[in-house]
């Protein structure tokens, strides 16, 4: 090589120093970036939100340990003086020496199983049977709006049929079904009661959408031809934005709705003021 060993090793030491400092600074900067900005998350507003956040914190804690640990090590390797003459000879392909790696990995596995267990509990509740007194709403996605349907006084949703969809009848409600007569159909606005489980049936009339409620920490896709569902119990009054999280076309970025969480009584009053779909235009 053109450069002498001496020069090369002093240049290496300089590069190593910069790299080590940079790795440690990156670590600090990343920790600061997360730590200083996590409060910008939408404040939790449902019963699931704190549970999901708890899992997030557990994983975040594990990640910080792994992230800081490895970067401390890498920085130390870069900063420490390289071996003067020769690296140590460590073929290290014997199971006994593997323990240096396998023990930390075992700890990682334990951590994995811990938060997987936590996750399964929330998951089971979310997909399990919702409480019997749930407040039911149906949402049908279209490019680029949410049609919100309430079952009306009879508590039953009327039949729909995609063949009946038109500009006047955006979700194809079949008015020959008696249950459909008192269905209330709104666009981009949904009122739900605080403290009572809300069951939302999700459908789509064209492409995939995803019904996303950031403060509730949940989302679920709307799949044409199928009905998916989500439920949660709102815990805090307020107006929240409904977002679409699945790419659904050029208006995707603007497909938003309004979720209003208020008293049960206020919701009932508000519903009473709405005209059922069958009586519209009369």
């Amino acid at each position: 090589m053109a450069v002498s060993q001496q020069q090369a090793s002093s240049r290496d030491r300089r590069t190593g120093f910069v790299l080590g400092v940079a790795l440690w600074l990156f670590t600090l900067a990343t920790l600061w970036l997360f730590g200083a900005n996590l409060h910008k998350m939408p404040p939790p507003a449902s019963d699931f939100a704190p549970q999901i956040d708890a899992i997030l914190w557990v994983i975040l804690g594990i990640s910080v340990i792994g992230f800081v640990g490895l970067h401390l090590y890498l920085g130390w390797v870069a900063l420490s003086r390289p071996a003067e003459v020769r690296a140590i000879y460590l073929p290290a392909d014997r199971p006994k020496e593997w323990l240096w790696v396998l023990v930390p990995i075992g700890l990682l596995l334990v951590a994995d199983l811990t938060f997987d267990h936590m996750s399964n509990k929330v998951w089971g509740a979310f997909f399990g049977k919702p409480p019997a007194n749930a407040f039911e709403v149906e949402v049908t996605g279209q490019q680029f709006a949410w049609h919100v349907r309430y079952p009306g006084a009879d508590g039953r949703f009327g039949r729909t049929n995609p063949r009946l969809i038109s500009d006047e009848n955006p979700i194809g409600l079949d008015l020959s079904d008696p249950a459909a007569r008192d269905d209330i159909l709104l666009i981009n606005v949904m009122h739900v009661p605080e403290g009572r489980p809300v069951m939302i049936y999700l459908r789509s009339r064209d492409v995939l959408h995803s019904f996303f409620l950031p403060p509730m920490r949940i989302k679920m896709d709307c799949v044409p031809g199928y009905t998916t569902r989500m439920w949660f119990t709102p815990q805090r009054k307020g107006n929240y934005e409904i977002a679409c999280a699945e790419l659904c076309g050029m208006g995707h970025y603007n497909m938003k709705g309004l979720l209003v969480v208020e008293d049960e009584q206020a919701v009932q009053n508000w519903l009473a003021q709405q005209t059922p779909f069958s009586k519209r235009g009369q």
Partner: peptide
Amino acid sequence: SVKPLSKP
């Protein structure tokens, strides 16, 4: 020849 640092 380089003298080894550590014994295997």
